[in-house]
Write a protein that binds this DNA or RNA. Structure first.
Length: 194
DNA sequence: AACATTTGCAACCGCGTGCTG
DNA sequence: ACAGCACGCGGTTGCAAATGT
């Protein structure tokens, strides 16, 4: 498909407080759907895409911003190990967090952390990782370059289907999260190997 | 104090997918 | 079955703030 290239007519860049207010007020009345309509009828000189992004990442109620806790960080690391760069899935398991925030946090904090750990672990003894974990690492490498490969559903086809059922809109899986957090890395690897 | 560099985050872009007529 | 549209996702970029020299 060919998205309207004529979107150059819309304003770009940082949102102003006034724009935020208009968008929030409109969505409060009409709901967050039909973003093109929202963009037009709210009186904002923005494209629908931009409105959607602003709402989801900033204006939406119950958004948590900043101060990612150690628990959340740990969960992100574990989920990323499982899922790769599937930020929306990861975000779906972190109530109040957005895919964009998690993606940014990963790129600016965690990826460096991983790199440093990777260098520290680059001793021969540290290289005997379970096959599945190795696959995940390779998967991460691939995700670093290309965009589309990560969407292959077969790449996340684990036996533990129930545990990893991300298909629904979900209840934010707090039980799932808690259960997951109780596992340490070895448990996770063992569980994956089953 | 001034400038250069790095970091972190908000926003944009292109593409894939699902829905609807 | 097909085309067009709208939405959602992940990668990337741009810029302000923070830090270093």
């Amino acid at each position: 498909m060919a998205p309207m290239k004529g979107e150059g007519a819309y304003s770009k860049g940082a949102w102003t407080a006034e724009e935020d207010r208009k968008l929030a007020e409109f969505i409060e009345v009409h709901g967050a759907k039909k973003w093109k309509t929202v963009a037009i009828k709210s009186g904002l000189n923005r494209c629908g895409k931009s409105c959607r992004l602003r709402w989801l990442n900033y204006l939406r109620p119950n958004i948590k911003r900043g101060n990612i806790s150690h628990e959340e960080e740990d969960l992100i690391l574990r989920l990323h190990k499982l899922l790769g760069n599937r930020w929306s899935l990861i975000a779906g398991r972190l109530p109040g967090r957005t895919d964009n925030e998690i993606k940014n946090y990963w790129n600016s904090h965690l990826s460096k952390k991983i790199n440093q750990q990777g260098k520290a672990m680059a001793t021969p003894a540290a290289q005997e990782s379970p096959p599945q974990a190795a696959d995940c690492a390779a998967e991460e490498e691939r995700h670093g370059g290309g965009a589309t490969g990560s969407r292959d559903p077969e790449n996340i086809s684990f036996e533990s289907g129930e545990f990893l059922n991300f298909s629904g809109d979900g209840t934010y899986g707090l039980e799932w999260v808690n259960k997951f957090l109780e596992l340490d890395d070895e448990d996770v690897d063992q569980w994956l190997a089953e």
